[in-house]
């Protein structure tokens, strides 16, 4: 509740109650003071950090400028050349590494997906079209393993199974 009061999150009535309590409670007043000190430390710390960072960044940029100015050449295109050299030195190994990664991925990680094989109905078969010309064609499945049988008869050949 005290923390919420400190952050200004309470309603007017609640704020009034807290303030009335603070007037009579030394412990809570001390706690509130600690909250304020903590907030001040954090705020100051950020400012100090930001200041140090800015100084460090400026020093770093100075060093970079100095290093680039000390390069080989007439000086007119030194930054561009230096950047190009740095880019090549960094990017060629990166490209080789990327190529190696691609190969490792292809051989060690990536596998051609295996076809899904349903083994529940081993001999499952769907006949889409069938044409026996002028012959009689029988189509049926066996009792045991539901194997599809296509039996062509005609030209005096006897019809076969009782399974029909």
């Amino acid at each position: 509740m005290l923390s919420a009061y400190f952050d200004g999150e309470l309603s007017g009535r609640q704020t009034a109650r807290i303030e009335a309590h603070l007037a009579s409670c030394a412990h809570c007043r001390a706690e509130l003071a600690r909250l304020r000190e903590t907030q001040a430390l954090i705020r100051d710390g950020f400012l100090v950090g930001a200041g140090d960072g800015a100084r460090e960044l400026e020093a770093l940029l100075g060093a970079v400028r100095q290093g680039m100015a000390g390069g080989v050449g007439d000086g007119s295109d030194r930054p561009e050349r230096a950047a190009r050299r740095w880019g090549l030195r960094a990017l060629v190994p990166a490209a080789v590494g990327a190529a190696a990664l691609v190969l490792v991925f292809r051989f060690a990680v990536y596998r051609t997906p295996e076809p899904v094989v349903k083994t529940l109905v081993k001999n499952d078969c769907i006949v889409d079209t069938i044409d026996g010309g002028d012959r009689t064609v029988l189509l049926f499945k066996t009792h045991n393993s539901k194997m599809t049988v296509i039996w062509v008869s005609g030209n005096g050949e006897r019809l076969s199974p009782e399974e029909v």
Binding site: V117, C125, M147, T148, I150, S160
Partner: peptide, 10 residues
């Protein structure tokens, strides 16, 4: 079906 068998006769 893969590995399945069909009988054709007559």
């Amino acid at each position: 079906e893969n590995h399945g068998t069909v009988i054709i006769g007559g």
